[in-house]
Design a protein around this nucleic acid. Structure first.
Lengths: 236, 236
DNA sequence: CGGATGGTTGATGTGACTCAACGTCGGTGG
DNA sequence: CCACCGACGTTGAGTCACATCAACCATCCG
C-alpha cells in the first residue's frame, strides 16, 4: 500500500501534505499507513484516546456527537483531502464513522506532531483549515438554531451539490443537469439537520411535488430548479 | 494607554501573548492599540473586510450570524483572554459586538500576521485554541439540534457559572453560594440558544419554581441546586 | 419465499412559537 | 414630585411546525 508512495496520491494536491516537498514527503510516508474502512464502520469513538490522525483520501465520513440518552447529532462531514483527528493529546470529543467505503492515510499522533513542528507551512495550512471549519460550524449553528425544516434540507442539498462537484459553485443551471447520489440515509440526513426521518422524508416529497427536485431512486436526487432551491435555503 | 506596556496586562498570562518573552512583547506592543468599546456597540460587521484582530482584555462580546430576513443566532461568546478576528485576509463571516463595556488590545492584521510567522509558539497556541473553539461549536450544535428548551437553558447557565468563576468546575455546592450576573438580556440568551424570549423566560421561571435557581433581579441568577441544574442539562 | 432495511405516508400529539396583555424598572421632563 | 415613556421581563391563550406513533411499500438478499 504505502510502498506505492505519495506521488500518485489522489489528494496529493489538496491534503495537508501538499505543503511538503517530495523529499519531506518521504519522511511522512515512512510513518504513514493506509487504512480502508467500510461503509458504516467506526474509525474512532468519542471518549477514546485519539492516538492517530490522518487524511481522507477517498470516501466520506461523519463526525457524530452523542447525548447520554442516545440522541445524536452529526456535527461535521469529512471529504477527500480533509484532515482527521487532533495532533495534540487528549480524548476525542466525537465519533468518526464512514458513510461510504473510505480510504485514509493515517499517522501515529506523536511523530506526526513532530512533523508538524518541523514544517511550519503544514501547520499553517492546518490552522487555516481549522478556522474555515470553525466558520462552517458556526454557520451551521444558524441553520440549526433558526432554520425551518425546509431551509435545513435545501441548505443540505446545496452543500451536497457543491461538494459533489456536479454544479460549479454559483453557476446557474436550467434543466435537470445536476444529479447527486447522497451517501447518507434519511436518518443520517436527519441527524445532520436536527430533524426526524419522517420530517426529512416529507420535506423531500414537498420539494419534489414543487418541481424543484426529482427523486428517481432512494438516494438519488436530481435538481430541476437550482434557483428555486437556493431561494428556499437560508441566505445571509 | 499602550504606553503602560504589557507587563501589567490583565490577561498577560492567558492571552496569545503569553507565548512571547518580554522582549518580543515590545515589538507587539509597538503595533498594538487599546480600544474601549461600549456595551451594545459593534466592533466589526459581518461582511466587512477584517482589517484588525486582537485580544479581549476585559468584558464580554458576542459573535452573531444573521439570516437575510433578520433572524439572528449568536454563534460564540468572547471572554477576556480570547483572540478575536482572522489573521488571514478575507471578509468577516460574523458580526462582533460588546455585551458589556469591553476593553481590547488590537493589531492591524498584516503586521500581526508577520509576528505570527516569526513566533511559532504563538501560532501553535492559536491553532490549539481554534481547535478548542471548534470542539465547543460542534458541541453546541448538539444542543441546538437535539436539545429541549430546558436543556438549552440549563446548559447555558452552567456555562455562565463556569466562565464567571463563581464555582470551580466540577465542584459540588450545597446552598446558594453561586450568584451570577448575566451580561445578556433574555433576548440575547434566546439568540444563543435558538429559542424565543418568551420560552427563555418561561424556562427560567420553571427552574425557579422547581427550586433550582432563584432570580432576585432581572439578570441576577442564584444557583440553589447545582446538581439538579446539571441533571437537567444535556450530558454526553 | 420471508425477513431485514430503508423510505413514504397518515393520524395524532405536543413543545415551542406567536400574539397579546400586563408588570417593573430607570430615566426624563413638565 | 409625579406623569410619562421606552426597554425589558413575565404570563396567558391559541396556533403551528415538527415529533411521535403506526401502517404500509419497495428493495435487497439469504
Amino acid at each position: 500500500m504505502s510502498s506505492e508512495g505519495c506521488s500518485g496520491c489522489q489528494v496529493r494536491e489538496r491534503a495537508l501534505c501538499s505543503t511538503l516537498s517530495d523529499g519531506e514527503l518521504a519522511r511522512l510516508n515512512a510513518i504513514s499507513r493506509q487504512k480502508h474502512i467500510e461503509r458504516g464502520a467506526t474509525l474512532m469513538w468519542a471518549g477514546d484516546e485519539g492516538v492517530v490522525c490522518g487524511n481522507v483520501i477517498a470516501g466520506m465520513l461523519k463526525m457524530t456527537a452523542f447525548a447520554a440518552d442516545g440522541r445524536e447529532q452529526i456535527v461535521g462531514l469529512l471529504y477527500p483531502g480533509d484532515f482527521v483527528g487532533r495532533p495534540q493529546a487528549g480524548e476525542l470529543p466525537f465519533s468518526i464513522a464512514a458513510l461510504t467505503d473510505s480510504h485514509l492515510c493515517i499517522f501515529p499522533r506523536a511523530p506526526f506532531q513532530a512533523m508538524l513542528d518541523d514544517h511550519i507551512a503544514m501547520e499553517r495550512m492546518l490552522l487555516r483549515r481549522t478556522m474555515t471549519a470553525l466558520d462552517e460550524a458556526r454557520h451551521r449553528m444558524l441553520l440549526l438554531g433558526r432554520g425551518t425544516a425546509e431551509e435545513k434540507l435545501a441548505g443540505f442539498l446545496l452543500e451536497m451539490i457543491e461538494r459533489s462537484g456536479a454544479v460549479p459553485s454559483g453557476r446557474a443551471i436550467t434543466a435537470g443537469e445536476a444529479t447527486i447520489d447522497l451517501p447518507l440515509s434519511r436518518g443520517q440526513i436527519a441527524d445532520v439537520l436536527g430533524l426526524t426521518i419522517e420530517t426529512v422524508s416529507r420535506q423531500m416529497t414537498h420539494l419534489r411535488t414543487a418541481g424543484i427536485i426529482d427523486v428517481p431512486g432512494g438516494r438519488l436526487v436530481e435538481v430541476r430548479d437550482l434557483a428555486a432551491l437556493r431561494a428556499r435555503a437560508m441566505v445571509d
